[in-house]
Amino acid sequence: MGLFSKTEPGPAPQGGSQRTGSESGFFGAKLGVKGKISGGGNLIVMGRLEGECDLNGDLVLAPSAAATGEIKAVTITVSGNVTGNLAARERVHLEKTAVVNGRIATPRLSMVDGADFNGEVEMKKPPEGPSAPEPSADVSGRIAPPRLSMVDGADFNGEVEMKKPPEGPSAPKPSGKK
């Protein structure tokens, strides 16, 4: 059936994360989605997500969310667990409770102290970004701190490996690599 063959024209409003015109989807904590999510509008995920997500809107992964796979959206806010790649057209924000293992590609990245991130960051500036502030910090390379925070506007390209201190109360099980 051709029900799903036609794509929505969906004139996505540009600029800013306040897409007032689009409604928000919501996947509750006890819902799991395996496969491909696409389309427009914003989405809040509280449950499991496995596969591919390509959203023309804002994606929020709540603290209870666990996502694996390729995730693309205009903005991505993570408070939950992600294993995989995050690609944002505008920005990625990692909240305190976020645990991300994978690769982040975004023009803008911010990260609250307490967020756990292991992986690679690639910050590509859009060709002409009038809204993008001049980077207050510009770091390239590899950093391996136990804790890391990052303010929106900072520019970082490279790899991050976060080793939790052994007696950390919230320290997850150490990986085999010591």
Partner: peptide, 13 residues
């Protein structure tokens, strides 16, 4: 849970 109007899910829910 809500699969809102512009969202397309192909797979298992």
């Amino acid at each position: 849970s809500l699969v809102s109007r512009q969202i397309v899910v192909e797979g298992e829910i």
